[in-house]
Amino acid sequence: MAHDDEIDCSGMNCPLPVLKTKMKIDGMAAGSTLKVITTDPGSCQDIPAWANRVGHEVVETGEGDGKFWFMVKRGE
C-alpha cells in the first residue's frame, strides 16, 4: 500500500512505538499516511488504541518475519 512516510520502531518496547509514532505523524499533513513498523506484540493493541483516541485511522495492518506494520492515516 502506498504511504507518504515510514517509521521503524523495531526493537522498541512500550510506550516508545506510540510516542515515536505520535511525534512523527505530528509533522505530517492531514490525510497523509504513515507506515509504522514494530516488533512489540503490545503495539498491536496500543497503536490502534492511540490512533482511535486522537482521531487518526489505522487503515491497514499486517505482520510477517517477526514484525508488525500499521498504515496510519493522519486525521484533521
Binding site: 512500550c14 510506550p15 506510540v18 510516542l19 505520535k22 492511540w50 483516541r53 486522537v54
Partner: peptide
Amino acid sequence: FILASTGAAMD
C-alpha cells in the same frame, strides 16, 4: 512517566 507520556501522546 510511562502513563504521563502516553496520555499526553493521546491528547
